[in-house]
Design a binder for these strands. Structure first.
Lengths: 249, 249
DNA sequence: AATCTCTTTTTGTGATCACATTTTCAGAAA
DNA sequence: TTTCTGAAAATGTGATCACAAAAAGAGATT
């Protein structure tokens, strides 16, 4: 597997949003052999998940094709896939936009995250090896490192890796794609939050979860994950969300 | 909206499965104005959800394009979307197959259905109007009618409509797409089961759910839905699933 | 009969083009 | 200044084609 370097990706916005500065998509290695479509899909997905797009942003097939140095066909496939998992939305008039978020929808998504992830965590406990638990603890350390470095995106990605590593210990991780779908839908507001939050702090439910994993205590793991979400991103109340959305508008 | 009639759809299987008889996809109206891609997606999705494809079946882009009287481009988009929601799988060698199911994966999917749908039901209770509850009761009646008619597919679709109507009462039904993803993944084994189950019987947890809805008792609704799943399709134990998969192989 | 090899066919991929719809925008009219 | 109108540009859609990889099949060899 050879990883080709890739320049930062600048996406020109649709004309109606010309006042917004072009977005720089985080670079992402492209293993050779990977199809153009797959590359486009993963690149966009990653960008949305870490909040590189604002709610309501509209993108165009040709624009992305140009940014990714390819043609409309594979990009359109990638965009269609992204709509299937709730990351994008094809409107009636065929424009492609990042879905808007309302406080109510935000609340639904958080509540769904809690239900889904505490379930996924519970179903993973029995399958985790001691070694895997130590790797999870290591990821948790890296989160704090990234926070100290002030690299919010890196901290966010590490936080997702923490959760993902737990859930995918299950040999049939059927819940993982659904979890990622919810993450993608929360991505845009997360991006806004990161712009307006000066200091990231880590909710220390991770240690609690790791301890519970070591004890193989399914209920405690599920509860720690639920609390982590509730006190983390879930801590935004309706007013805070509405405020953030106003700031971004 | 004009609905055009459409002939039954015969999908020629990939060569390696030539011994299987061609599958007839249930017809589905195509509103004019609907894109070719959308039509292909919905038609295939519906077919998979009601068990028209066996696990392991492989499909080809050109084959489906011919069956749908269109070209590869929109079909490929539809197939890519279907993989995003777990209904299909692109293998390493680029063949497109209906995912295989193992007893363990089946169990995970059922357990996920329970977690997801009892959550979705709970979050819908407060939003259901009296009128909607009566409509749900009417759908439940239609399920029994279809069963008496011996129309398994119609009964299955009505059963899905019953669940869907509850969950989508939520004005932000963010869980619904995830629920449908799980339904799609269970579709193929459901199709096998229907071929080998002579008599459909309805688990009478639906009445229980409806009663709980009338009382606005969220816990009781969630528990009734969970029990409905557990005692319905979830009632297959590992042995039964393994047996069914052997029969289909 | 089973295995290997080489040719033929099938299949997924992605670029391109024509078409219809939508959006944008300049200029006229109120 | 605001609103309306029509031409020009941009955009999504879907069919087609060339290419490379994979699968299938025929024939030879063991």
């Amino acid at each position: 597997m050879v990883f080709l370097p890739h320049p930062p990706l600048i996406v020109s916005q649709a004309k109606g949003h010309a006042h917004l500065k072009p977005l720089a998509l985080p670079p992402l290695g492209r293993p050779d052999g990977m199809t153009t479509h797959d590359y486009a899909f993963n690149r966009l997905r990653q960008a949305i998940m870490v909040g590189a797009f604002r709610p309501g942003t509209s993108v165009t097939i040709r624009g992305l094709a140009e940014a990714l140095e390819s043609s409309p066909t594979p990009v359109r496939e990638a965009l269609r896939q992204l709509t299937s998992i709730g990351a994008l939305q094809f409107l009636e008039n065929r424009r492609i936009v990042v879905p808007h978020i309302t406080p109510a929808r935000f609340e639904e998504l958080i509540s769904l995250r809690i239900a889904l992830e505490s379930h996924a965590a519970r179903r993973a406990v029995a399958h985790l090896s001691e070694r895997q638990i130590e790797q999870i603890a290591a990821i948790d350390d890296s989160i704090e490192t990234e926070i100290r470095n002030g690299d919010k995106v890196a901290a966010l990605i590490a936080n997702q890796a923490f959760h993902r590593m737990i859930y995918t210990a299950n040999p049939d991780p059927v819940a993982m794609p659904l979890v990622e779908s919810v993450w993608l839908q929360l991505g845009p507001i997360l991006g806004i939050a990161m712009e307006h939050v000066t200091e990231l702090y880590v909710v220390d439910r991770h240690r609690e979860a790791i301890e519970a994993l070591r004890r193989r205590d399914e209920d405690a793991v599920a509860e720690a994950i639920a609390a982590d979400i509730r006190e983390g991103i879930g801590g935004f109340d309706r007013q805070a969300v509405a405020h953030l959305l106003r700031l971004a508008a």
